[in-house]
Nucleic acid binder design. Structure first.
Lengths: 167, 167
DNA sequence: GTTATTTATGTTATATCGTAACGCGTCAAG
DNA sequence: CTTGACGCGTTACGATATAACATAAATAAC
């Protein structure tokens, strides 16, 4: 199963050319928004950019600070609405364990977001989770349950921190 | 919602003898607590009982109301501490999507909690998720990530509501 | 092109969820 | 019988999230 056809995911914890991956993802996100007829307004677009630039999960209030500093509104709904829009349109994900949001690294692709959260360094990786989702769908189907959205989040140690932590 | 006093509505999707399943689960939970050397004090035990009786996910503040009405403390930490204890010891789970807690239906057993949350009737089922967890472990291992805890939660429609809602 | 209608943004205010920190009581080890 | 760990209750506060309404911008209807 490590033969994932997704290089980005494999490099999630590794260093990479972030400005490039950010630009590409933003382009794909814009295409996806257009495809869905979703209006990527200035606040929304900037919110997505900030998520992509930071390349980590970010709380709504931290996002609000960033937006307010750039001249947008400075009240909670400004951030929450933009973030909600992004989530609704598959351009970002909500990481409930962290009360935070992260840009989707695979906008437009069918994928199951699986978040791996390092408890030591707080890094968050969006791992490919198609098999996980398949197993989840199966478990739900066995009970007659229809899944519309799923949150799959794991807490543990990333490769770097696992090395330091347990010798 | 108001499925509070209606076992069938609040229960898992399969009907069952709830008072029996509750009693059994409590017995297993006590055994598990003893095995772990965890002290199931009056507040903690009562908290678990309330979770089992209600047979649904319950917010910390609602739990606090119940506890306070029975003579325990009436400040948030009372509920949060008891609930945290139960979660730490595998006697309850936290359902992050609902900011709520639910009694574990399989205390002492190795299992992956998978929560199926009906968006129509708010019922919550703890489905068997061993295969899901296996797929998740595999996905994490492919990235060198070590999972310590996982939250797997799905939102959708339970069998009953799927019938009524949108055919 | 102007008006009507929807959609998005900004703002006020408040609701909900969660935790830090201190003091007291209990209980078992030394 | 002291000491130290733990559990419980409380005060006080911090963090997260949403309801409701007013304003402005974009789109649709004519």
């Amino acid at each position: 199963m490590n033969s994932e056809s997704d290089p980005d995911a494999a490099a999630a914890f590794a260093t990479h050319d972030h400005s490039a991956c950010m630009g590409e993802t933003l382009v794909r996100a814009e295409a996806e928004a257009a495809r869905r007829g979703a209006r990527l307004t200035p606040v929304r677009r900037r919110t997505l950019e900030i998520l992509l630039e930071s390349h980590r999960a970010m709380g709504a209030y931290e996002m609000l600070d960033r937006l307010a500093a750039e001249g947008f509104g400075n009240q909670p709904p400004v951030a929450y609405r933009a973030l909600e829009f992004l989530v609704e349109n598959g351009l970002a994900h909500r990481v409930r364990r962290l009360n935070a949001f992260a840009a989707c690294m695979h906008p437009g692709e069918v994928h199951a977001p699986v978040f791996l959260i390092c408890r030591a360094c707080d890094s968050v990786a969006e791992a490919p989770g198609a098999p996980v989702r398949a197993a989840l769908d199966e478990a739900a189907a066995a009970l007659g349950f229809t899944i519309e959205r799923a949150n799959i989040e794991a807490l543990g140690l990333c490769p770097a921190c696992a090395g330091k932590d347990a010798p």
